[in-house]
Each structure stands twice: as structure tokens, then as C-alpha cells.
Design a protein around this nucleic acid. Sequence first.
DNA 1: GGCATATAGTTGTTTATGCAACTAAACAAA
DNA 2: TTTGTTTAGTTGCATAAACAACTATATGCC
Lengths: 146, 146
Amino acid sequence: MPNNQFKKGELYSFITGKASTAIARRLQKNFKQANLDITIEQWSVLYHLWKEDGMSQQQLCDSTFRDKPSITRLVDNLEKLKLVKRVPSKEDRRINLIYLTKEAEQLQEQTMDLASQTLAEALDGVTNGQIEIAKEVLQKVYDNLK
Amino acid sequence: MPNNQFKKGELYSFITGKASTAIARRLQKNFKQANLDITIEQWSVLYHLWKEDGMSQQQLCDSTFRDKPSITRLVDNLEKLKLVKRVPSKEDRRINLIYLTKEAEQLQEQTMDLASQTLAEALDGVTNGQIEIAKEVLQKVYDNLK
DNA sequence: GGCATATAGTTGTTTATGCAACTAAACAAA
DNA sequence: TTTGTTTAGTTGCATAAACAACTATATGCC
């Protein structure tokens, strides 16, 4: 049976990604229970800044797989929350470099722990081998459509 | 290595589901190229109605993994597009039964073909065995968080 | 019957996405 | 230097999601 003919009843789940939205919802809920008032989308931006502070908005677009307007607005909201600061680049005046504030730095440990816990809940009973294959498939799908 | 400790660098992709958003975007693009003016979210509602016409909004919530306000507004928009019709249930006056119009019925074949093609593009080079495992993992994740 | 509770659906608010159109700065070619 | 093109970021608009608060109907219990 060729790949493109697997059962149509299974189409929907694949396309809409109910698993990833379930993870996202749970993580959001776990943030809320810990009295963390950030969205998972905001967190995903912080996540990349924790890895490399001072990225440009364009770099954040590439890292987070979002378009430029999305990042503009996420940075707007993160700035309102005083979690990041836009700093104009001195070399290239078109560029904003995004820096974490001290408040944001303090969020790293707690939120990363919550994310790890959430993922552990999600993957309970799934073997590492299965996870590896699932990741490969998702990566391949992404590459195919890029 | 226990499941809950796999590399943090891989956290992000899992959580944000970049693969499923990539599929969604591609399907939307393919709809647009075929001059089909519906969103994939609207399509996902039609998809379930094609399987069983006349579902209640609550049934659509369960089938599409959305909450009630989301379905209310999707049905609003589908009604504006004259693709579905709300019909009050005679047995229970709280319930709206959602019926496809003739226009919507005509969309089924073409959009399902486009969805199959999109999925085929996405899964090019992925074996059926890998797909099976990926689906199992995603299902398990969903069940774990339900 | 009358009251409490559960269920179906709607509305308001905030946040986010996708797309198109736009501004401003950099760069390249002549 | 001027003209055209690319790149970085912003703004406007439509759609959608999550959550809370709400209305209306149904149901269960006394």
C-alpha cells in the first residue's frame, strides 16, 4: 500500500495535530497553576532567547517558525510584560536586537522544569525508540513541506 | 535514559508541533490555489459532517477537539458562506443540528483529494511502518493528556 | 409542581496566526 | 549620486483559539 493511500479516517488527526495542541494546552494550564502569566507562544520566544540572548527579530522568526508580523507582536507583548527589550543594532539600523530582562531570566528554570514535566506526562508509556521514530517522521514532514 | 529526560533542545519542536502547522499551511495554500475560499478549520468541520450530517454543535466539539465557543463561531462563518444550516432540534430545543448545504456537498470530493495529495507530499519518503509508529505515539500523547 | 443542577449554545475579551501592504534602511550597479 | 532591489520590521484586516460569564432549556429530586 503506497504512503498516499492510508486510511482517510486517519487524515484528520494527522493534519490538525491534536497531540501537539493537547501538549500546548496542558503546558499552558501548568503555567497557570504555577501563577505564571505568560502564554506558551511567549514562552517559546523566551526559550530561544535563553539559548541565545540578543537575537534579531528575523532570527527569532527562523528559530520559532513564525512570520515577521507574529514575532513583531509577540515581542510587543513580551515588552509590555517587561520580559524583553528591543535594542536597535548599531551596525544595521534596520535591526532590533531582543534582550531578556532580569525578570525573564528568573523564569527560565521554573518554566523549563514545567515543560519537562509536561512532556514527561505526555510521553508516559512511550519508548525512546518510538519517540525517535516519531521525531524523524515529524522532521521529514516538515522538510518535505519547507 | 528515562523518557522524561530526552534532550531539552528537542522540547520545542514537540511542543509547538511545527510539522502539523506546516501541513495545515500547505493544505490551506493548496485550497487557495484551487480557488477554494474556505479555511482548514472550516474544512475540518465539514469533514466531520460529511461523515455524519446533522450532528449537533456539541458533537462537533467532541469530534473536532474544539470548545463550544470555537464551534459556535466556525458554524457562524460556515453559515455565512452558505455551507451549513443550523436546524433546531425538535426533541430538545437547546440543540442545533448542523446540516450541509448542496454547495458543501459539492466540495467534498475536491477537498478530500487535495487533502490526500497534501498528506502524500508531506509523507513522501516516510515508510508505512514509521507512519504507524508516529500515529501510535501521537495517539498515546493525546490519551495521556486527555 | 417547584427548585437545584446539568447541558447546549452564545457573547465578550485577550492572544495569536496568515496574508498583504507598507516604511525604512542597506546594498549593488551604473 | 541616483536608481533599483533586497532585507528588517510594522500595521491593517480576517479568522481562530482559550477562558469566563452568560441565557435558555432540560432533567432529577423532594
